[in-house]
Design a protein around this nucleic acid. Structure first.
Lengths: 114, 114
DNA sequence: TTCATAGTTAAGCATTCACTTAAGTATCAT
DNA sequence: ATGATACTTAAGTGAATGCTTAACTATGAA
């Protein structure tokens, strides 16, 4: 099992490519085969398979082969992980700004004013 | 001005590196100089500057040089953009699952049951 | 059995990435 | 003016990325 940092590396890297993001977009609308995913992309099938592999390794996508077609689905668990990482940082920064605002207000109006 | 897709490429790419994420972590706790950012990292200063440049280009970090010190801050606007992208996809998928659940429930209990 | 479909594997190639070291350039302190 | 601090720039290197084409392997259909 991979550690948290490495999983973040992989998932952010996976999302850093427009072709892979478009595959995720497509899969959010429902499962699809490899050739379904390839159709809107202007690149060879092997290239699509390579992107798919990156998505699988990142944990964003799961696939299962039945007969000769491989069906792909998104894994929301990983989307949640990303979401959480970003939200934590953003809110941490925003709370800091709030505290700073409070501090400035208190400094403007002396504490013994009332 | 860059388009939405390219900005997403850059911001996800920027976050795909542990050193850069640790720099963002640090900056969420408050502004810092380049050498502040470099201190906990086991790499040369030029390497840190290069990572910083990637963060600036992604829009995640702003910097301003005063005297000989460059001060860096996070830009939450870009964190929000990432957050929104992920949330949209996740909720889209979850709504799909909800609709599917409804459908299965309806199919299990015939409509004329009541 | 023969053909087409769906995907896989392998190899190669240009580009980008994440560093490094070495040599700068401003600023600030004495 | 001298030296130290805080970066900055440039050039080089090995590894990873994002493709490609060519050849191959299953599976399903006729």
């Amino acid at each position: 099992m991979l550690n948290y940092e490495t999983r973040l590396d992989r998932v952010f890297h996976a999302l850093a490519d427009p072709a892979r993001r478009s595959m995720v977009d497509r899969l959010c609308k429902g499962p699809a085969s490899v050739s379904d995913l390839a159709k809107p992309l202007s690149m060879s099938l092997p290239a699509v398979v390579q992107h798919l592999h990156v998505l699988e390794q990142s944990g964003l996508v799961r696939t299962k082969k039945v007969g000769r077609v491989r069906t792909c689905t998104v894994e929301t668990k990983m989307l949640r992980t990303v979401e959480q990482w970003v939200t934590e940082r953003r809110t941490f920064w925003e709370r800091r700004l709030d505290r700073l605002g409070e501090f400035l207000k208190e400094t403007a109006e002396p504490a013994d004013k009332t």
